[in-house]
């Protein structure tokens, strides 16, 4: 069952098109990773989902309800953590957590205490004096101590230390176990790789790839380092071979995942002594999709000229 569906979402700021026909779907019990370069439109999408921004065009449904018109109803079941957490400077962290939890309606006191301990936050300090990471913890604790069905997290860990990053990942796994859904936008690819069932990649306001990690891996290349008795010839003529470099250890190259079988058959003719392969990472995929974006993003996304 889908918790969240976005169909053909377009958002314009004046003449500037920030989102251009975005389609997304998050199913219940799913952790969806939302990645893309700076300024691609992740936060804008999330703000539209939250009914904070009004879509110029498109059909946005959360729990089957309209994200703009039924925002209040929807938000009773949604917890949101922004990347840049701004709080009231003269309230304490504890006060802010209570305010947020109370405004949502649900109240889980024991969970709150547990999370405060887990995240190692001093809730008696004024928000003015919190570090970036500590402000983020306040928002995370408020989010995870409410009984939401959908967690929308926009770069929630950009200020957390590795230890806290682990605590965060545990929290996400916990809510997943309870069958809740998570939309996680992040630049930390290892985090996305570890947590997410599905990934959507957005660039210049358009979704360019979406699918499960294993599906996406098909689109990636594997790095191979191979040493053979006879020198390999004619490798570059094969389909799906990239960046061939000869070194003392042997020949290194990248191969498209779908051509793997053919390539393996071909090189085995040359008597393999040693072969090493690095699994395709999200990072490779990411890099490949991001390449050559600089020139385009210089003038802005989508271009409304």
């Amino acid at each position: 069952m889908s918790v969240l569906t976005v169909k053909n979402l377009t958002k314009k700021f004046g003449k500037f098109t920030a989102l251009d026909g975005v389609n997304l779907e998050v199913n219940s019990g799913e952790i969806f990773g939302f990645i893309g370069p700076n300024g691609a439109g992740k936060s804008t999408t999330i703000r539209v989902l939250l009914g904070i921004l009004k879509a110029t065009e498109g059909d946005i449904k959360v729990f089957g309800k309209d994200a703009w018109a039924d925002a209040v109803e929807i938000h009773k079941r949604v917890a949101y953590v922004p990347g840049d957490v701004n709080l009231w400077p003269n309230l304490t962290g504890g006060e802010v957590i209570d305010l947020f939890v109370k405004l949502r309606g649900s109240n889980n006191q024991s969970r709150r205490e547990e999370l405060i301990k887990k995240f190692d936050l001093d809730p008696t300090k004024k928000c003015r004096t919190y570090s970036k990471g500590n402000r983020q913890k306040v928002a995370l604790i408020a989010a995870f101590s409410s009984d939401a069905d959908l967690y929308i997290l926009d770069e929630p860990t950009s200020g957390l230390d590795p230890l806290m990053e682990n605590v965060f990942q545990e929290c996400v796994m916990d809510v997943k176990k309870q069958g809740k859904s998570v939309l996680l936008s992040s630049h930390i690819l290892s985090e996305v790789e570890k947590l997410c069932d599905k990934v959507g990649i957005i660039r210049q306001g358009k979704i360019i790839e979406t699918g499960s990690l294993s599906e996406l891996r098909h689109l990636t290349r594997t790095q191979i380092l191979v040493d053979t008795k006879q020198p390999i010839t004619g490798l570059s003529e094969l389909k799906g071979i990239h960046e061939v470099i000869e070194s003392e250890q042997g020949l290194s190259f990248q191969v498209d995942t779908e051509e793997m079988d053919e390539v393996m058959k071909y090189i085995s003719q040359f008597s393999i002594i040693k072969i090493e392969s690095a699994p395709p990472t999200l990072e490779d995929l990411f890099m490949r999709h991001y390449e050559g974006t600089e020139t385009a993003s210089d003038t802005g996304v989508g271009g409304g000229k």
Binding site: I52, V72, I74, H75, Y80, W88, F100, L103, R104, I152
Partner: peptide, 15 residues
């Protein structure tokens, strides 16, 4: 401008 309304708006409070 300090982003606090954004937090409020993500809660079940009206626009």
């Amino acid at each position: 401008e300090d982003g606090r309304i954004e937090m409020i708006r993500s809660l079940p409070a009206g626009r």
